[in-house]
Design a protein around this nucleic acid. Structure first.
Lengths: 251, 251
DNA sequence: GCCATTTTGTGCGATATATGAACAAATGTC
DNA sequence: GACATTTGTTCATATATCGCACAAAATGGC
């Protein structure tokens, strides 16, 4: 791509939107400048542009995003076949096993939820389409990493900051790579309270008609209600049934 | 705002993202140019920029959005207090009444879902945070329109294309304005299969500590399981209980 | 397989934007 | 209350982008 085929004003603007995160709903110009590394003047121009278009509110001091910004993500969720096709299957699956079922894809080192049918909540955080979790310690993440060529998986792990969310979180790259090879062999991944104490989950790959892994499906359950060992016995079959049913439907 | 405080390259780029909708997951350069009214060269540069940044895929002919684009909408959902605060209440409410419960805000003439707890599906389309429905024929839309000054509500209705989704859909502006005044008086709205046959819903306003309506809450049920008249008896009280509980928590 | 039509890629002059420093205003500190 | 610091705004100019016109390539109809 030629230099001139890149609209840096656009790229800068997207960076500004992403500056609004978890703990920072309201940002002043200087905050955005710091978060993005953009010049204050540039950050200001991007923010004023967002406000002018109705994607942000401005009270003279702080900017905050408006719900209009949801149009951008929704453009993906409603335009992409995968979430649309998967959702009804997740609904049925969740009802059948009385647990939450989700589908996700990999985006860099993170798992991104693209569809979800939630039964009663067991996790402390609220997952929904668009939510992200670190791949290395999520069941769907393991499955998706395992589907990559080993050196790619290693590279991704290397650029992940491997934090221990619980005492059980595996954070050693080599241990994780071994785990991935196990997942590759057995065809599913189980996470036993590595992300959050009290939470177990099991995931399987979702392959398309050519056998390429395009997403992962999982079921999450509270560790109190079921042991990690039982997860496979109870949920593996229904999960794989859904994966198989979906397979011919995916491009 | 001064002319020079507007980054048109950024605005154009956002337009390009929004060109990807419902039925159009894959777009060629010319498609985007037509959909946005941008020059082909400009559309191309924006698309290549999206691809370069990983927000889009390009196979040499068609562009499609990647899940990375979800970061943009998620910046709002995770940064804004409202969805975070409301979600657990919806979860409990949905479980209590065994029906789906949602929260939404108004964006122009549309209702935007910001949180949702879905029980078994009754609607044909899949609603999730970010989903949009026309305000005039959705229960939460009625509540949110009713919260506006009457002339603003009228203006919004005037710029809405009032289509009849079912034989019961109200599409006469004056009839709708009367309906709004009724909603304003009684403090809730009921929609009886105006959006989709077989679907009833009831909504109440969610006010903040200063009495300003900041969102709406609703419960949807299948018309087969409950008549529109019964909706109020069964669901109004639990809905209002949630609205009251949330009130002091909202700024 | 050929031609008409549509779509995509590129170079260039005109125009719009980014930059960084300088200034003004607000905020915090002692 | 005065000083120091941070924050927001403005401006001139160097730089990058836009949209047009044209060339090349792909597509589609017969």
């Amino acid at each position: 791509m030629r230099e001139t085929d890149f609209v840096s004003g656009f790229a800068r603007g997207l960076k500004v939107i992403e500056a609004f995160g978890e703990k920072t709903p309201r940002l002043a110009i200087a905050d955005v400048s710091k978060a993005t590394g953009l010049d204050r003047a540039t950050a200001r121009r991007c923010l004023l542009t967002l406000a002018e278009l109705g994607y942000a509110d401005y009270d003279g001091k702080f900017f905050s995003l408006t719900p209009k910004i949801l149009r951008l993500g929704h453009a993906y969720l409603s335009a992409t076949p995968l979430p649309q096709v998967v959702q009804p299957y997740l609904d049925r699956l969740a009802e059948e096993v009385h647990q939450s079922a989700s589908a996700s894809v990999l985006d860099g080192t993170e798992v991104v939820y693209i569809a979800r049918a939630s039964q009663k909540r067991v996790m402390s955080i609220n997952l929904m389409p668009g939510s992200r979790l670190p791949a290395y310690c999520a069941s769907m993440g393991r499955v998706l990493l395992a589907a990559l060529p080993e050196n790619e998986a290693r590279q991704l792990l290397e650029k992940t900051s491997l934090a221990a969310f619980t005492p059980r979180t595996k954070t050693e790259p080599n241990e994780l790579l071994e785990e991935l090879s196990k997942v590759r062999q057995q065809g599913f991944a189980i996470i036993d309270q590595e992300l959050e104490l009290g939470l177990c989950s099991i995931a399987v790959p979702l392959k398309n008609d050519r056998g390429i892994t395009v997403a992962a499906l999982n079921i999450g359950a509270s560790a109190a209600s079921i042991s990690a060992d039982q997860m496979a016995h109870k949920f593996l079959e229904p999960l794989q049934a859904v994966a198989n049913a979906l397979r011919p439907l995916l491009r």
